[in-house]
Amino acid sequence: MRGLIPLLAFLALIVLLAVSILRGNSDQLSYKFLNEPFPEFELTELYDETRSVDQALIRGEITLVNIFGTWCTPCKAEHPKLVEIGETENLRLVGLNWRDTRDRAKSWLAQLGDPYDFVIYDRMGELVIAMGATGAPETYVIDAQGIIRYKHVGMVTDQVWAETLQPLIRQLESE
């Protein structure tokens, strides 16, 4: 019987470690800006390089910020859904174009459709890193006060939109 003690102690340790690993949801777990104001930035608009944009542009109404790049294949795959959202929803859509040239980004949007109310041009990933993003595509829901309420990593599919993003936006609209 006493010989079982080390085994039981070992099992207890495994359970303890497993619980702490499984408890966290890795995407939302350590996202520093969840329920925090959108970070400060100073960049320019994609179509008009003389027009500077900052965090003030994000405030005032519920906004979807979508990180994309023409080099990013899943971004292309999710794009029709964003175009559809842009057409059917009364919602401000902001594009954050990452690691592109202006010309490439503009012709990509001309070809696939431009659902964005405006596009922030972030060639060097300045804002992408400042907002703690991990890659592209990523989509953020920001409330009217400019607070980040949700971060979605990966494509906005029909399912993600219907089950997660749309209900959240409806809830924010009723707040």
Binding site: R99, M124, G125, E126, V128, I129, A133, T134
Partner: peptide, 11 residues
């Protein structure tokens, strides 16, 4: 080699 890491290195 990821794009995010490249940008972080530069920053």
């Amino acid at each position: 080699p990821s794009t995010t890491a490249q940008d972080m290195r530069r920053i």
